[in-house]
């Protein structure tokens, strides 16, 4: 059975068959290949994958932030009744920063080093909401307190370099929710942070999502981290979604061998497995310009059969809301 999420009034973002291609001298590469997923209102979706799997470029593609060499080859991005894939740059500008907030990995490169925090926070408020400078500054101070930057008002005259990494990321979060967006896209927001601060930031984003009814797309390479805050998880491999489903299903009953391998290779402080070797996934990601014709994971897959090398498996539903693209998982399921 092919899967299609039913379009209902609870769906905020619906991405259908999105493909993104990058042109280079060595030829064109489809870095995102026929990706479909949706986000409901108030839901947190975790997007998991290793570097180069296309998770960041998918998010850039949603909002027209693709680099020059890349473009949307096909597909639609339905967000609050608009197709973002076909929208003019001018209109997109109002959506970005307005209806969709962004948080990136490195807060130092996302903040303007020569502008005070107050000016950086007030500007979008004046731009998108047309409020006066005073009102904007007062709200900026309130926002900083809300995201846990102590001494709200006195911080407004500070510059980014005067803050620690964790504090900078909190400022970025404050900035992303200024215009009361309905969707927040967080691209590896804690990767540059220490583990104790990472936990604080994850908890902060979760609490904001609950408090403000905000939908969140959290991109990460860390399945354990994502499982703490997401309701549903999408696993990407080599530009394709290989599995998606509710968070508990994903780590209790993973169907795709790649998801299984990712889970197995997670080192754990809690259980000390026998031996000192970690279960590794052999090999590396395939070159996006030269992908094998069948399943992109076949060359590294412990379960692969002949069919995997010939055709790409379709997404198949296994349980309610839990889909995977794997021939072997299908065979196992029908054998039961």
């Amino acid at each position: 059975m092919n899967t299609m999420t039913i379009q209902d009034n609870k769906t905020l973002l619906d991405v259908r068959n999105l493909s993104i291609a990058i042109r280079s001298r060595k030829g064109s590469a489809r870095v995102v290949d026929d990706v479909s997923f949706s986000v409901c209102k108030g839901e947190t979706l975790g997007v998991v994958g290793e570097s180069g799997c296309g998770k960041s470029i998918t998010m850039l593609g949603l909002t027209g932030l693709l680099p020059n060499a890349a473009s949307i080859a096909s597909g639609s991005v339905d967000f609050e009744g608009h197709d973002l894939a076909r929208m003019e740059e001018k209109e997109l500008r109002n959506i970005r920063g307005g209806r969709i907030g962004f948080i990136f990995q490195d807060p130092m490169t996302s903040l303007n080093p020569v502008m005070t925090l107050g000016a950086q926070l007030a500007e979008p408020m004046m731009q998108h909401r047309g409020v006066s400078r005073e009102v904007a500054y007062r709200e900026a101070a309130k926002l900083l307190t809300m995201v846990g930057v102590s001494g709200g008002e006195s911080r407004l005259s500070q510059y980014p370099h005067q803050l620690s990494g964790g504090m900078r990321q909190r400022v970025m979060i404050a900035m992303s929710i200024i215009c009361q967006p309905s969707l927040l896209i967080a691209d590896e927001p804690t990767t540059a942070l220490d583990v104790t601060v990472q936990r604080q930031v994850a908890q902060l984003i979760k609490s904001l999502s609950v408090k403000l009814g905000l939908s969140v797309i959290w991109i990460s390479h860390d399945l354990a981290l994502v499982s703490q805050i997401a309701e549903r998880i999408v696993v990407l491999y080599a530009g394709k979604i290989v599995e998606q489903g509710p968070v508990e299903d994903m780590y209790l009953r993973p169907r795709h061998p790649y998801t299984k391998a990712l889970l197995a290779s997670l080192p754990s402080v809690a259980d000390h497995r026998a031996g000192r070797r970690l279960p590794a996934i052999k090999g590396a990601l395939p070159d996006p310009r030269n992908r094998p014709p069948g399943c992109p994971f076949a060359p590294r897959c412990p379960d692969q059969i002949e069919r995997c090398w010939q055709a790409m498996p379709e997404m198949t539903r296994f349980e309610k809301g839990h889909d995977a693209a794997c021939f072997v998982a299908e065979l196992k399921e029908s054998a039961q």
Binding site: G148, S164, G166, M167, D194, V195, T196, V197, Q198, R199, Q200, A202, Q203, L204, K206, S207, L208, S209, V210, K211, D222, L223, A224, L225, S227, Q228, I229, V247, Y251, L263, L266, S268, V269, A270
Partner: peptide, 20 residues
């Protein structure tokens, strides 16, 4: 602080403060 599978944030727990 190490993320663990199965541990879930509800958005209501108090956020521990402090940085190095």
């Amino acid at each position: 602080a190490v993320p663990r599978l199965g541990e879930r944030f509800t958005g209501e727990e108090p956020i521990a403060g402090g940085e190095i």
